[in-house]
Every structure is written in structure tokens, then in C-alpha cells.
Design a protein around this nucleic acid. Sequence first.
DNA 1: ACCTGAACACCGTTCAAGT
DNA 2: ACCTGAACACCGTTCAAGT
Lengths: 186, 186
Amino acid sequence: MSDTRDKILEIGRRMVQSNGYNALSFREVAAEIGIKSAAVHYHFPTKGDLGGALANKYAQDAQSFCDGLLQSGDTAEKMFRAYTGVFRAALADNNRMCLYGIMAAEYDDLPPGVRVEVDKFTEVNLHFLEALLKRAKPELTSADIGTRALAIFSAIEGAQLVARGRKDITVFDNALAAHQAVGLTF
Amino acid sequence: MSDTRDKILEIGRRMVQSNGYNALSFREVAAEIGIKSAAVHYHFPTKGDLGGALANKYAQDAQSFCDGLLQSGDTAEKMFRAYTGVFRAALADNNRMCLYGIMAAEYDDLPPGVRVEVDKFTEVNLHFLEALLKRAKPELTSADIGTRALAIFSAIEGAQLVARGRKDITVFDNALAAHQAVGLTF
DNA sequence: ACCTGAACACCGTTCAAGT
DNA sequence: ACCTGAACACCGTTCAAGT
């Protein structure tokens, strides 16, 4: 876990969240650190390795965050708002997207090793939402819970996608408010 | 409107829908047609010009489709199902995405000329959904209609994004069914 | 262990030149 | 009007070589 390696991961994550996996450039990452691109390849042999490491770290961070929320003892409403706050923060930070959302859009262009890590992120999020639903809406069947978690997750990702396209964070807020108003979310 | 120009647009559209604007390659387009990449530049001087033309045509086609639906005299439910069917068809066709969705994800990496055309597509879709809402849910205020249209549009785009990431079209169907079940859509 | 220099085949773009 | 050939600066990747 060298210092250089961490810098690569941090700069790489920002690049992907801003412009996508395709726009992730070894030469640009290297230039920002002040080394040569070949040195980046020493830490991450291929672009797929770097992309996979980025997605893996992202999924792992999401896991820790969700676990922390579930153990907080807060209401489902409060946990849900803290959860969506993370997606909102990405938009507030220079119109960035959740790393998952942008990589899902590029999915077919992703190396298999990156796809696996992207899939992990989805699982983490769905499990969190299912746990919330189980607490807040005990009247739902377990099949309905699975479907509803998917519907909520896709609604959040879509709100982020459209808000980014409009460069307007209030689009995100309004979409989520509407989803809540009809009873889709918490 | 030469034959070559049309071929470029068709191949280019498929490339963007599969792998994004960044993966759109003049050399690959040229190779598929059997000409040199410089010849593609004759029709579209820059990549931004080609991307803009693709997004423009996409928005225009959406406009025609939505206009046709609104004039069909069908119920809002039937029109909405025909509308979402287009997004579904993209997924069914080799896990492709709506051109808008993938370009919205890459938004910050897009040349200004492409962004303008991407924005047009959003407007077309929001106007269509607002027209549907006005008919089917006359109890909503005009402010609520705008918010609701945004919420529905983002929910559809998100369902497509997540379904693509999971390479599973039933995710799209289930998410839309859940959105309908809670009364978000029609 | 970590990095550089140089090479490879790719890319968008430009432009003179061909028909 | 439409296309080619050749060049430019970019890209990911490889590998021998340096420390």
C-alpha cells in the first residue's frame, strides 16, 4: 500500500466519476502525480486492473457505510436520507456521478474484471435497501421486497443520471421528492 | 444526404448505444463501411459534429414517435406502454442503452454541441410525459406535473441503466412494474 | 521495490493530393 | 463532390534498463 498507489486510486476515481471509465487515462494520472505512465502500470498492469481496483474500493466503502447506517439505530427514513445524501454529494461535487452509475452505462465496454466489481456494488445497495424495507414496510412479501429494492435503486440512479444531464441538482431533489410522495421510497 | 453519410450515422449510433460516445471511433466506423477514416471526416469534420448529428437525429425521431402516440387517440396507459417499449427494445437489442442515457452519463466529457442535442431529447420526453399526465391525472397541479414527469423519466432511465448493468431485461420489467404498482406511472 | 526511456499499434485530426 | 495517403500528437501496453 504505497503512497503512489493510493494517489493513483484517488485521482483515478475522480476521473471515472467525472468522465467515465473510457476517459480514465494512465498518462493523465501519471502527469498529475509527476511520474511516467509506465510507473502507473507497475502498480496496475492494465487499465482493467486499475478500473477493477477502483470499483472494488467503491463497493467496499459502500458496504462499510451501509453497515454503519444499519447499526445506527436510526429510523428507516433517516437512514434512507443519509443514504441518498451520498449520491447527492457526488452531484454537488462538480456534477460527478456515482462510480457505479457511470460504469453501468459503459458496462458492455468494461473488462470482465471490472464488471464483477461493479456487480458487487449493486448487491451491496440492494441488500441495504431490502433491510430498510423489511423494517419499514413489514407488510410486503419477500418477493415484493426484492422488486421494490430494485425499483428504488434504479429510481435513485436515474435521478442522478438525469440531474447530471441537466447539470441541475434540484432535478435530483425533485425526482426523489416525487418518489417519496407516491410512496415508492421512505 | 449521401448514402455514405447515412451509413456513418447508423453505424455510429449503434456504437454509441453499445459503448458510449468515448468509444465512438472514426477508424472503426470507416472500416465497417470500407472507406478510410479521413473520408468520415469529410462528412463530419470532428467527432463532436458526428456525436451532435447522432443526438440530434435521436431527439428528432423521439419527437416524431411521441407526436404520433399523442395523436393515436389511445389511452394514457397504452401510450405509456408503447413509450417504455422503445427503451425496452434497446436493451433487448444486445443490451444496448438509449442514446440519451449513455450520453447523460458521459455529459461532462461531451463537446458543447453534443450537449445541446442531448438536452433536446430530455425536453421532448418531458413534454410527452407531461401531456400524458395532464390527460390521465387532471387532479395534479401544473407544478406537480412537471416534477412528476421528471420523476417518471428518471425512473425509466434508471431502470434501463441498472438492467443494463445486470445484463437482465427482467430487472427493467420488474422496476417498471413496481413503479406502476405504487402509482408513480400509468 | 519502484521508476524511466523507448518502442509498438492504436486514436482523432489535418491537409495536400488524387478522381 | 468524395475519397486517399501521409503526417501529427495522443493513447494503453510492453520491456529492457536503471537505481
